[in-house]
Design a protein around this nucleic acid. Structure first.
Lengths: 224, 224
DNA sequence: CTAACATTCTAATGATTGTTAGAATAAAAT
DNA sequence: ATTTTATTCTAACAATCATTAGAATGTTAG
């Protein structure tokens, strides 16, 4: 009898832990989390980022909320969702690493996502350590190609912001004397990739950062 | 059209990533993983550890396998399952930390699991850093209260193994001159807790380690 | 070759989850 | 007060998942 209650409370504990796992067990929710990690955002903004109906997005957000991954506060008519905890970014990075290491399909999907990268490896990514070294040496300029509100909510130091859609018409903003490093939301965000491709076609020295703003912030590096 | 294919391959990628999340989204699978993290084990052993029928355990193990978290090799009539990757232990630790930080219910469940700890805080746990310091100073003796085969498959350096069930009849094995630190499978394993309680009742100087063997190993610390 | 054993597969069941459309709620603007 | 806007809730349905019992597969021992 004693043993049985011990067993069930142990199982209850793992079931509760599993709630957090379950929250990470939906592609739609992972996309929502990736977007929330950039900046707090309204249900409508999140629904559009994840390509969901508002009702459905709201339901997924409740799910994330029950799992303790996000919190919501009201601001006027809107509810703004944010991550409860920077460790959630680390959790997602680790999930990604484990998946990339152990699931053969991931490799195929990643290369399909970045499929138009057919410029003989020129669009190779730059790692966090290389980027830090380049920034210290003053040899690279940072370009943030996310939307303005994501940029406003936080960005890498010294970065300039040109959302991808406006890039071609705002080339004069770019420095000519340094290599440009473009970044965006994270490893599976295509914005920096497309920016790098466009700029390279136009003759710029450019690479993309292989992570994004949330990973930089979660690593405790300085932000603005 | 181009955008649509980009969108779907992006969604496919997150869906595949979500497979790993889903694998972590079941209490039964988390219990299986905790046990597998101790040592490779047969389906029957795993089923019994998680209190499942063999068929059901097998189905869950297939699920974990498809998610890339475990691999299986045949040894005679048995299939032996093991973790693909030490990072999975880290992933579970992070899951636990996030859950404990952000889910109020976790606290209640943890304290219920260790409910008979009513010895005025005497059974307080010792952290990894304190343990390392104590080992270096030679002031603590390590006691592994897991089963023999888990111990054989790997244990903390200098630890002696007395499975909990035999502890009371093997007290002469314990050193009298040092504080004893008991450990077992991990933070949610009750074995070390019950051992510490028993020994304390018998007058020993004893605490429990607040993690377990898998976390120690995943941290890259030396094992035997 | 046959028997015994460990595991996986299959089919059927109930339980849980994802999704949509539309009603209900809550705050802000007219 | 009424309307508009943003979000959540409800009910319903389809899809997926967990579980069991039993058949099928593969391996070892006699």
């Amino acid at each position: 009898m004693e043993i049985k209650t011990a067993m069930t409370s142990r199982q209850d504990l793992f079931d509760t832990l599993a709630q957090v796992g379950k929250a990470l067990g939906s592609g739609h929710r992972l996309v929502l989390l990736e977007r929330i990690a950039q900046s707090e955002a309204s249900v409508e903004a999140l629904a559009s980022a994840a390509d969901l109906t508002v009702g459905n997005a709201s339901a997924h957000l409740q799910h994330l909320r029950r799992a303790g991954l996000v919190t919501a506060t009201r601001s006027g008519k809107q509810m703004l969702y944010r991550l409860t905890d920077q460790r959630i970014v680390t959790l997602m990075s680790l999930l990604r690493e484990v998946a990339e290491t152990n699931l053969a399909e991931m490799e195929r999907l990643v290369s399909r996502l970045f499929a138009n990268d057919n410029f003989d490896g020129a669009l190779e990514a730059i790692s966090r350590d290389e980027l830090l070294a380049g920034l210290k040496a003053g040899s690279v300029a940072l370009l943030d190609v996310r939307s303005e509100d994501e940029f406003e909510a936080g960005h890498l130091p010294e970065a300039i912001n040109i959302p991808l859609a406006q890039l071609e018409s705002m080339l004069e903003e770019l420095p000519k004397d340094r290599e440009i490093v473009a970044y965006c939301r994270g490893p599976y965000c295509v914005l920096s990739h497309e920016a790098a491709q466009l700029l390279r076609k136009l003759g710029y020295q450019v690479r993309r950062f292989d992570e994004g703003f949330p990973e930089w912030k979660a690593a405790g590096l300085p932000i603005h």
